[in-house]
Computed example of a mutant assay.
Amino acid sequence: MVRLPLTPEEVQRGQRLGALLRRARGDRSMLETALDALVSPETLRKIESGRVATPAFPTIAAIADVLGLSLDAVWAEINEPPPGTGRATARTAPQRLAS
């Protein structure tokens, strides 16, 4: 199977996800967190470093659960547009009513 290259937006989203997980992990060790989430420490390291920009949903769900993060909070944070882009997201775009 050939995997398509990641878009710049996917890469940035992966970097935001990694930063969020590192902050949420705090002083807790990467090894402890990974083992509690039933993922390999190498997988967690790659996600936190942004090397795996599009990890599997069950992997993120398990890590978020261990770190006490809601999936809604994870989704909201990783999909924030970079400051100053002025780009509206589906969540913040004004809704148009059909007439």
Results as ranks from 00 to 15, higher is better:
2 V>I: 10
2 V>D: 08
4 L>F: 07
5 P>L: 04
8 P>C: 02
8 P>S: 09
14 G>V: 05
16 R>V: 14
16 R>F: 09
17 L>A: 10
19 A>Q: 14
22 R>E: 09
24 A>G: 05
25 R>L: 07
26 G>M: 06
27 D>Q: 13
28 R>S: 13
28 R>H: 06
35 L>E: 06
36 D>S: 15
38 L>R: 12
39 V>D: 00
39 V>P: 01
40 S>Y: 04
40 S>N: 01
42 E>N: 10
42 E>T: 14
43 T>E: 05
44 L>T: 00
47 I>E: 00
54 T>G: 05
55 P>S: 05
55 P>D: 03
56 A>V: 02
56 A>P: 02
57 F>D: 03
59 T>V: 15
60 I>E: 01
60 I>L: 10
60 I>C: 02
62 A>D: 07
62 A>K: 06
62 A>T: 04
63 I>D: 03
65 D>H: 12
67 L>C: 05
67 L>H: 01
67 L>V: 05
72 D>T: 12
73 A>L: 11
74 V>E: 04
74 V>C: 04
74 V>P: 02
75 W>N: 12
75 W>S: 13
78 I>A: 01
79 N>T: 15
79 N>R: 13
79 N>Y: 02
81 P>Y: 09
82 P>K: 13
82 P>H: 00
82 P>S: 13
84 G>Q: 09
84 G>I: 07
85 T>E: 10
86 G>E: 11
87 R>E: 11
88 A>F: 05
88 A>T: 12
89 T>C: 08
90 A>F: 13
90 A>L: 13
91 R>M: 09
94 P>W: 13
94 P>L: 12
95 Q>H: 06
96 R>N: 08
99 S>M: 13
